[in-house]
Design a protein around this nucleic acid. Structure first.
Lengths: 193, 193
DNA sequence: CGCGACGTTGATTTGCCTCAACGATTGTGG
DNA sequence: CCACAATCGTTGAGGCAAATCAACGTCGCG
């Protein structure tokens, strides 16, 4: 249990008391493939750290089409951030599904906030994580605005080679905002050089 | 000078010492329309709080096309977050330009980090701000994935009526990822009901 | 084996882009 | 204060990337 703390808060060192506090808030669980951590209209309180496996968060639009917001593999946190972090929201607008059998550690946002206040270095660590996410969000928006589907696919494969192994092609298509048919054509085109 | 602190950190209250510290780090300046706070390849150290006026951050792709990442009006912070928050970056990849004559307060990221450590409530305030931004980024990505150009325009106008007054149509087009011609057609289409 | 999930391929459609020309509006110097 | 230019917005014709619709191949698994 000690080791998971240094995995989650990599680079930080804690007193025994701090470790005990952290451990008391993080609940370990194993998640089966195809099961859900969150479904639309659920109440959202928790965020999930992925130690093993792979999950995705996605949303279904009015036309019934799925759009993947995020994948999460080892080292990532996942939840319905639109609800959890948003201004007025309470119920989940998105779904969090396990794609590959996973081991996760859950904590409620309220408890996490409390940890940030009890242990300031956790807060600074969180800020740094958020800043990195901030930069990569801007990058993703920029790519959506400026790149062709082919270029976005190439970038995705280069940036997240680990994820590519864990997910189906139609998941990648959904993340990139294209159809499975288009992705298929892109892939044959690319393999033909 | 006291009032700007309670504008920037709305909802927090500070001791006189804290206010003095905060004020000593925030540099006020007036920015002319069409001038730049940052240009591509500049070294990026600072972030900018907008008290008045309007700015935009944008990027130029390989084809020479501009893509707007962010607008900033009263109450918003703006910078080149890809460089400032990113992992390995140093030089600016984007441009920050004044669209409407502005009054801003600048602070370096290093000094801001220091303030977060000196005054913990500033850190918690910052976390909350980042979380809100996080949620709205996810929303923007989702809209780019799932909505038509027309729907994104309607959403933009509803969500940011203030900004619409300050910026040109071709700025909105660039933010939405469409051409000015397309936006023009969308607008005539909408006004015809 | 047979069925469902996944991926591919083809024909056609469509939303938005490109290129080009032309109004409308704003700003500036004489 | 007008004249003219630059900037901004609109309109039209044609093109292209990706979507849609439909059918079929392939793989893995009960």
């Amino acid at each position: 249990m000690h080791t998971i703390i240094s995995e989650i808060f990599h680079g930080l060192s804690f007193t025994t008391e701090e470790i005990n506090l952290l451990c008391s808030k993080l609940k370990k669980s194993t998640i089966d493939k195809n099961s859900f951590l969150l479904k639309e209209d659920d109440e959202v309180y928790d965020m999930f750290y992925v130690h093993k496996g792979c999950l995705r968060s996605y949303l279904i639009d009015r036309d019934g089409k799925e759009h993947i917001l995020q994948f999460a593999v080892k080292g990532w946190w996942i939840s319905d951030y639109i609800s959890l972090y948003g201004r007025h929201k309470k119920l989940s607008v998105s779904n969090v599904e396990c794609i590959k059998t996973a081991t996760i550690y859950s904590i409620s946002k309220a408890e996490f906030d409390m940890l940030c206040r009890e242990i300031p270095k956790v807060a600074y660590f969180h800020i740094k994580k958020m800043e990195l996410a901030f930069a990569s969000f801007q990058n993703r928006i920029l790519e959506n605005l400026s790149l062709s589907a082919t270029q976005r696919y190439v970038n995705f494969v280069e940036t997240y080679p680990t994820i590519v192994n864990d997910v189906k092609n139609y998941h990648i298509a959904s993340y990139l905002g294209i159809t499975t048919e288009s992705l298929s054509r892109i892939r044959t085109e690319l393999s033909a050089r």
